[in-house]
């Protein structure tokens, strides 16, 4: 079974973001970028499926600027087989990303799409669900365990209040939650080998998808700063402060 894994290049999760003074967005100039952490988990799961003999080929797809090629290389070093990069300097919304991925999937015909539950920049948590809706495939989001047997996947999902288990027919879209696995580090030999793996470069025009934004960003602002707090010396002091504040 061919597994397709979409990955996104985002600001590194440890970076404290700065909002631009003109309120047009977040300052991404000279900021460290990495693979979205949830995408790493999806790649890891695909590689494990290949190691178990369930997956036969892993295709990594990224949509973004030319530098997204580095993100694909990272995924190839983790164990992906080949890459598809759809270049665009626009920052497509989830709807456009889902449509582009659906177009790639129409060409690739994978038996499973594994992807992250959300990207840590837009925090939308939408592309996987939208993709499965566009494809008419079942979805299993927020996966913390995946068991594939024959033409179905049994997926344990993290939901409010606990865990839920669903059984979905393949092909399906499964989105990875934090607890699905611990992604591996790419070893130096694998990083070298990944340089030889094929990455096909495409453009949005190749797929004839309209990626015009539906949402206009009017401004990006900093959240209200919390006023400076105080340090208290003792627990009794703390309780009296909380009593005064009326929260006990």
């Amino acid at each position: 079974m061919k597994v397709l894994v979409p990955v996104k290049r985002v600001i590194d999760y440890n970076v404290k973001v700065r909002v631009k003074a003109d309120q047009t967005g977040v300052d991404l100039a000279n900021v460290k970028m990495s693979m979205n952490p949830f995408c790493e988990i999806a790649v890891e799961e695909a590689v494990r499926l290949k190691e178990k003999g369930v997956a036969t080929e892993i295709v990594i797809v990224s949509i973004g600027p030319a530098q997204a090629q580095e993100t694909i290389r990272t995924a190839l070093a983790m164990g992906g087989d080949r890459g598809v990069l759809v270049t665009t300097d626009a920052d497509p919304e989830p709807l456009a990303v889902a449509k582009l991925l659906a177009a790639v999937i129409a060409e690739e015909q994978p038996g499973l799409v594994l992807m992250g539950k959300q990207a840590i920049d837009g925090d939308n948590n939408a592309v996987g669900q939208m993709l499965s809706a566009l494809l008419g495939w079942p979805q299993a989001t927020y996966a913390s365990a995946i068991e594939i047997s024959g033409a179905t996947a049994k997926v344990t999902r993290e939901v409010d209040g606990g865990l839920q288990v669903l059984d979905v027919d393949l092909p399906a879209v499964i989105t990875a939650d934090l607890r699905l696995n611990e992604p591996r580090y790419a070893s130096l030999p694998n990083i070298m080998k990944a340089k030889k793996k094929e990455i096909v470069s495409k453009t949005v025009a190749d797929y004839g998808v309209d990626i015009a934004p539906r949402l206009k960003v009017l401004k990006v602002t900093e959240p209200a700063k919390r006023s400076a707090g105080i340090k208290v010396e003792t627990a009794a002091d703390l309780v009296s402060k909380l009593n005064t504040a009326g929260v006990l």
Binding site: V19, I120, D121, G122, L215, K216, L218, V220, E222, P223
Partner: peptide, 29 residues
């Protein structure tokens, strides 16, 4: 286009939502 996790309604077509783990607020129309 879905609009995720709004924290404020500015008008019938304009909303505020947090991005980048709540380190920025985006006003979208």
């Amino acid at each position: 286009a879905p609009i995720s996790e709004i924290v404020e309604v500015v008008s019938a077509d304009t909303f505020v939502r947090p991005i980048y783990a709540g380190n920025a607020l985006e006003t979208v129309q």
